[in-house]
Design a protein around this nucleic acid. Structure first.
Lengths: 120, 120
DNA sequence: ATTATTGTATTAACCGCTTGGTACAATAAT
DNA sequence: ATTATTGTACCAAGCGGTTAATACAATAAT
């Protein structure tokens, strides 16, 4: 899964989101050890400082914790991960629907578009 | 309709999008005169330079044109506006669906969520 | 004719993000 | 014991976006 970082938004924010999706979708399992800051930075083609900043945010929010010198680990609180999943999904819906309506599409048109696009 | 500008992305980009939505949804009709740069900037609580930059982009793409001292006008090319609408809607879909799937939701779950959320 | 308004251009300053470079303490690996 | 790896911290430089302040020419409004 590429990182798909663009220059429109702060990179560290995009990394936070990317890793949140990785946690929710199970790319990193609960309790699993993460690659080192330097390795993650290399994979993402980003400066280690930038990766560090993203990881600090995720740590501050409790999605991971660092063990000084042995590495960094995903939380084992599966309930918290489930909540994150719900929160991210809801956020997507709440961005998507109002924008589609603001474009002048009716609820039916939106539903049809989604239904159509989801098949292929 | 508030402008809802956040600090995550360049303001001028968000203004471009906001005005595109206004054009597509008919807030500004084809051929209609826009408020002055300074007025728009005041309404959006933004520096005139920033508003000017957004308007220049929209002008470069042909969605409006300025008449030196009499003001700035929305294009009368309704076909172009329709295309913009389609393009924006498609872009929303193409962002929304992959993200929902990446969260681990099945196509059915996504459809149900949309269907559910659209009713209320 | 005079005044106000229009779009436009320019410059300096500030701020946040990013990078590159360096460094350190703690501990795992050898 | 020595070495490598870990997270972490710091600083300087560069860059893009934003603001503020001015200015100008063209023309609409008076």
């Amino acid at each position: 899964m590429p990182w798909n970082l663009d220059s429109d938004r702060p990179i560290f924010v995009q990394i936070v989101e990317h890793l949140q999706y990785d946690i929710v979708s199970g790319v990193y399992a609960p309790g699993q050890k993460l690659p080192s800051v330097r390795d993650l930075a290399a994979v993402a083609s980003v400066n280690p400082n930038t990766m560090q900043r993203a990881l600090s945010e995720l740590e501050r929010d409790g999605y991971m914790h660092s063990e000084r010198t042995s590495g960094r680990f995903i939380t084992e609180d599966t309930h918290m991960i489930d909540e994150l999943k719900t929160r991210l999904a809801t956020a997507q819906i709440n961005e998507f629907l109002p924008r589609m309506e603001r474009l002048g599409l009716t609820k039916e048109e939106i539903l049809n578009l989604v239904e159509q696009s989801i098949k292929e």
